[in-house]
Design a protein around this nucleic acid. Structure first.
Lengths: 218, 218
DNA sequence: GTCTATACAGTGATAGAC
DNA sequence: GTCTATCACTGTATAGAC
């Protein structure tokens, strides 16, 4: 039995991907079913049946249902924490474009990452399971809320240092900028993951950046 | 069998409440268990056992598990939609206090309503079940998101009409004010429903109102 | 890696005695 | 309104043949 989790390439459904292994199919089918019916609402029989194998064969790939959900969460964490550019590069990027453009591009990068059906579905699972599963809860709180907030604070601190925006409290700026962004993304997740109409979400993000830019610009 | 849902008084756990009926106990125990383990993760046996009756007796009070969750959702809807003052009274209230005080009091009223453990737990259930249960989804989207947003727009429109704030677009003001509020409330729900430390949430709301007031005031 | 067969605890729900 | 008894079904998981 292959005990490795699917790699990013394995689990993603890129058009140039090699034919999916059974383990990949189980992974993606589980994500699909968990996201619409909840972890407890989906049986190993359901997943295996949808993939086309018997439930006993499931155990050749994952040693339990718990291990499968764990693999799903770990995959998400890896994907998510790669979205933000490393701290060292922020200053260089800020020198190359206006601050509002920096914010816009950050949101665009976020949308790009979030908008694959697989990632959207896992985000749904996390949201649904956060009160039942401590790992889901930690992922939501730390990686999806705290981390982006801390990152925003860092960015606004640098913007102020570089004299690009007004000298307001970066902590408050981070909250006031990031909370609406977080809320817009969380409502984006509520839309059908397989029918991505991102235009209204993009408009909302654009409106927010414009409004916020008017407040912080010098 | 009593087919009525528990009334607000029945289902709430006020100190002056009359001794709880078995149906009330089932209702509250279900809310408690569903909120921490999810609807699918809790059996009728679990609920009945926690209340101290056999699962067969459960059916003397609710005809199925589905009917129970339905009653829970309906109870929440009734409670939630009573939070906001009716439209006709907004103008009168706005005449009696400064706009920022109006916003502060609105949030306080919200906190008060949301902070009973029962309501917080149901809000958790709604959040967890929204991708599985169409009724939960509608409640979250319409009653908890759309309705407060439309209400905020109404409020800012009146504020502008009365010359109390700057003449900005009320739609944009509503979004920029309400999204952070909604996000703050949604993180408040993530805290332990039985150990309500609301002080950090109240601080965040106060910070947001202060920041926003500085933007909209004349 | 897949299958059949099996174990066995848990599930929602009903019938009927008290 | 509660109980015991029982139902058909579904849940996770294992053993062993191919």
């Amino acid at each position: 039995m292959n005990t490795l989790n699917p790699t990013i390439e394995e689990a993603s459904s890129g058009s140039n991907a090699s034919p999916k292994t059974t383990k990949q199919k189980l992974f993606e089918t589980a994500v699909d079913l968990f996201s619409s019916r909840g972890f407890m609402g989906v049986s190993i029989r359901d997943i295996s049946g949808a993939v086309g194998i018997k439930e006993s064969s499931f155990y050749n790939h994952y040693k339990s249902k718990e291990e499968l959900i764990k693999a799903i969460f770990e995959f998400y964490k890896t994907e998510f924490t790669q979205i933000m550019p490393p701290e060292e590069r922020i200053k260089a990027i800020l020198s190359s474009m206006p601050p509002d453009e920096f914010l816009r591009q950050g949101n665009a990068r976020f949308m790009q990452r979030l908008s694959t059906p697989l990632i959207k579905k896992i985000a749904r699972i996390l949201s649904s399971e956060q009160y039942r599963d401590i790992r889901a809860r930690e992922l939501v709180l730390q990686d999806m809320i705290e981390l982006p907030l801390a990152y925003a604070e860092l960015v606004f601190t640098k913007m102020i240092e570089m004299g690009l925006i007004r000298g307001l409290d970066p902590k408050i700026l981070a909250v006031e900028y990031q909370y609406p962004v977080a809320f817009i993304f969380s409502t984006y997740l509520m839309l059908d993951p397989d029918n991505p109409d991102s235009s209204s979400t993009e408009k909302r993000l654009a409106d927010h950046v414009r409004f916020f830019w008017n407040i912080i610009k010098k």
